[in-house]
Design a protein around this nucleic acid. Structure first.
Lengths: 155, 155
DNA sequence: GCGATATTGTATGCTATACTAACATTTATT
DNA sequence: AATAAATGTTAGTATAGCATACAATATCGC
């Protein structure tokens, strides 16, 4: 594993195209695993927490908005919101302007959850940051951003 | 979304620690989505393809080896190998040296699948590479590697 | 050699994510 | 007014990931 052109026993020739995609997947799954450990007592997932943060930042958002921001299907967002509402961390309300929409709000229990999560976020942040200089950290974020933000000039 | 310190409407103060983890997740899911599109006619997933490539590169590997390389649980690897074997893309054999182990081999159909996948890999590679210079591409891969490779100095 | 321990594969069951397809309601467009 | 689009919902499917338990085999410590 010393040759920078190889990965996990795969020679460069056949799998160089896979290298980035593999690193991306492994890095993401490692982070998710670490997240699960740190947040295990809260019983919340990365995606669920992100959804809650979005709702907390923009009270009254809709499921469709969350789907657009996190690039998730409507049906997928449904499932996530259902789980959060099932645990009374958020509530659905009715929009007065657009009667198709439902407003999403954080409950008191949700606020408590976010507060508890906030400490642990720092721990996860440290786990990630300790690998990088500040410059590298920002560079990495910026590079990753290009993958999901620039979707053939879309969104 | 012009301020580099904000993301998706979240202000830096509360969620900066989440920025990298979010970008990582979004980048990975965007890549996976693109993969699904490109490989849709083959009906194979990123993980399954990676497992097949590992087996192709190291015929006779075991499920445990794959699990270690891809950082997956034994039970998880089981499921993936079951799906691949169910489609006759690989076969399980018996190890002569260690009778706990089973050897994994690519079948003829598996070779055909890898061949068909190889073209499409290029397409996915392009989709990723077009966002970056060569230097950036390698930098990104190297930075990602630190997240999963250096797990508190392990592996 | 023998007992304790570790490794490997397996089976079961549970959960979360992600997607498709269809449907109803409401809003926007033409 | 008719058509199209957006939103939420439901139902069904597939995949991945995990915990747990079990059985067979290897390895280690003594």
């Amino acid at each position: 594993m010393k040759d920078p052109e190889t990965f996990a026993g795969l020679t460069a020739g056949r799998t160089l195209d896979h290298v980035l995609d593999l690193h991306l997947r492994l890095a993401q799954s490692a982070t998710q695993r670490r997240f699960s450990e740190i947040f295990s007592d809260l019983g919340i997932t990365q995606t669920q927490l992100t959804a809650m943060l979005l709702i907390a930042e923009t009270p009254g958002t809709s499921q469709a908005d969350i789907g657009r921001t996190l690039q998730m299907d409507r049906a997928t967002v449904m499932g996530i919101i259902n789980r959060l509402e099932g645990r009374s961390l958020i509530v659905r309300g009715q929009s007065t302007e657009d009667r198709r929409r439902q407003t999403l709000e954080i409950t008191e229990q949700g606020v408590a959850m976010l507060s508890a999560a906030h400490e642990r976020s720092g721990e996860l942040g440290l786990w990630l940051r300790e690998r990088f200089s500040d410059a590298e950290f920002h560079m990495l974020a910026a590079l990753l951003k290009r993958i999901h933000e620039v979707d053939i000039g879309g969104l």
